[in-house]
Amino acid sequence: MTLDVSRSDLGGRTREWLALHPDERRRRAVQACAVKDAGVLWSLTEAHLGLYGASGLLASPHTFSAYRTGVRQFAEHAEANALNLLRLSQDDAQAYVLALLAQGRKVATVRGKVAAASALYRALRWAGATEAQPFVGVRVPKDHEHPLTKNPPYSAAVLRRVMGGVEERLLAARGPERVTLLRARTLLLLLSHTGLRIQEALDLAWDDVHLDEDDPSLTVRRGKGRRSREVMLSDRLVSALRTERGLPRRRSHAAGMVLPFRTRAAATRLLRPLFDRPGEFDGRGQPVTDWRGCHAFRKHTGTRLYEALGDFAAVAEVLGHADINTTRAYVRVAGGRAGKVMRDW
């Protein structure tokens, strides 16, 4: 329901730009460029993405959020460097890439910022504000670091410790604290036992969860690229979902959805404290944590499945990857298996 309302609002904002006379659309875009108005520049970009983006209005909220941040940061860069947005050169665009790298941004992050700025210029050309294509041909260095080195999967030992801590606390918990811990357990199992993307977990509706069948499963209907898939459920996850279905909910919670919260930030607030290492603190007095974000759960699932099956195609099917080469970046197996053989030489 919440997601549908969000898309309806996006459709309305898109239609507002579409309904403008071309001259008025151009005037607003030119004015926004002149004063570096990040809000209007994003509104225009959002409308163009809704109309002509690869997924249109069906793109994930995370995609729109990332592009919105990228457009705002590019507008701030343009303001700080007195750039003329309507006459931006390729040199200016390449200098933006260098500035981001000089700030210590990761290559993948820089690629995302360039994608957002490119989307802005496609929108500006659509509005008739400029013919400039400054980001065409801009080069971003290749990232030679392996994805599993940058963001490795959670180890089985870490997840056992975290889940064990939750179960131990549940023995004494009462009231709202118990509800929170039960919900955290459900989300931990949902992510680590199915390999769902966090957005797929947030979008999961009870109508797509089949707990009472011989082979319990769930249906992912809004996967990346709008691909649907069936994912089997473990006995532990089935039990946790049955408990979740009986937990109290506020009226403000989305009706019919498995999880009562709708944002990644809410999921992170729920899970991140569970990954703090008991009694360990860094030099600033902050808890030492094993938290690596929600995507590391998918890599954990991929690794466990490959260890059991030895079949990249089967792992790709569960994770919802269209390209099996993507799956290879989710599996930390080869080095360990090779090491076992080499120790016996």
Rank of each mutant, 00 (worst) to 15 (best):
E167N: 13
L159E: 03
R264P: 03
G53H: 08
L88M: 15
Q103D: 11
H193F: 12
R222D: 00
A172L: 14
A329R: 08
V315S: 02
D208K: 13
S155N: 06
R26N: 11
W291F: 06
H144A: 14
K340H: 07
F297V: 07
L170K: 06
V209R: 05
L319D: 04
V315F: 08
E244K: 06
G223Y: 07
S217V: 11
Q133A: 10
L10C: 05
A265R: 06
G50V: 04
G112E: 11
A32F: 11
M257S: 01
T180I: 12
L10Y: 05
N325S: 14
A102S: 08
G175I: 14
T149M: 09
G302K: 14
R139Q: 10
A329M: 07
F64R: 02
A267N: 09
E46L: 08
A34Q: 11
L18Y: 02
E307K: 09
G223A: 03
G256Q: 09
S6L: 15
S60L: 00
E167R: 15
L159Q: 04
T301V: 06
E16A: 13
A266W: 07
L18F: 05
R26F: 11
G104S: 09
K113H: 04
V114H: 11
D9H: 15
S89I: 02
A201Q: 00
G285N: 05
R174P: 03
T45F: 06
A240I: 04
A115V: 08
R221P: 01
Y52A: 15
Y67T: 00
T327S: 05
G56N: 12
A123W: 04
Y96C: 08
K150V: 00
K113V: 00
V140Q: 04
V238R: 05
C294K: 07
R68H: 03
V114M: 11
T301Q: 06
S43A: 15
L189T: 03
R122A: 01
R25Q: 02
E200K: 04
W17H: 10
G246D: 02
E168M: 13
V114C: 11
F261D: 05
L233S: 00
T263V: 11
F281Q: 12
L182K: 00
A240E: 03
H21N: 10
L187W: 11
R277P: 01
N151W: 03
A38F: 05
F64Y: 07
S228A: 14
R250D: 00
D91I: 14
A32Y: 12
L211P: 01
T45N: 07
L10W: 02
V333I: 12
E145A: 15
G164M: 03
F74P: 02
R229C: 07
R169L: 13
P141K: 13
K224T: 13
L309Y: 13
R229M: 13
P152N: 10
G293K: 05
A184D: 03
P287M: 02
P176H: 12
E79L: 15
Y154D: 00
W17I: 10
M257F: 06
G175S: 13
F275Q: 02
L188E: 13
